[in-house]
């Protein structure tokens, strides 16, 4: 039986009819067709589906859609500015060569953005901690960490 939920999605008030057994990821990808958020495993083990809820990075594949009620969700689609210009963290990923196949990147950006929104100048340890749940097979993580550092230093 469908339920109505109201929440904020990328700064916009959103009202949706949802099935209680959906995950937030299902709502985003399959219903809203916001496919920037990826599913890499479905078990919270890879971080590709990371979104920010009320300021915290979470795995949307494990997040019951009913819990979204009243909360504020930010997805990768909400990170860049409306005019298409990139957020500094996105720009840093581009400029530092942190992107290869790119499948992990939306999750990486959401995880690091959750950190950077809280801390202007995080330590390297905090940077690594913020993305330790985001698997990447292409980059060896080096340039991803560099990209986050470059924003952390430049803010």
């Amino acid at each position: 039986m469908k339920k109505e939920i109201t929440f904020t999605l990328n700064k916009e008030k959103t009202i949706m009819e949802v099935d209680p057994q959906w995950t937030l990821l299902h709502l985003l990808r399959e219903v809203l067709e916001m496919t920037g958020t990826k599913e890499g495993c479905g078990y919270g083990e890879c971080g590709a589906c990371t979104v920010i809820i009320d300021g915290e990075a979470v795995n949307s594949c494990l997040y019951p859609v009913m819990e979204v009620e009243g909360r504020s969700v930010m997805t990768i689609e909400g990170v860049a500015l409306k005019d298409g210009s990139l957020d500094p963290i996105q720009q840093a990923f581009v400029d530092e060569g942190a992107v290869q196949c790119g499948f992990c990147i939306p999750g990486m950006i959401m995880s690091s953005k959750a950190l950077l929104d809280k801390k202007d100048k995080p330590t390297e340890e905090e940077i690594k901690e913020s993305i330790e749940g985001n698997l990447c097979r292409c980059t060896g993580y080096v340039k991803i960490v560099d990209a986050i550092k470059s924003v952390a230093g430049g803010r």
């Binding site: 971080g47 990371t50 915290e56 979470v58 997040y63 901690e129 330790e132 749940g133």
Partner: peptide, 9 residues
């Protein structure tokens, strides 16, 4: 435990 995302919830 787990990862940052896991620990957050």
């Amino acid at each position: 435990i787990g990862s940052k995302q896991i620990r957050n919830v």
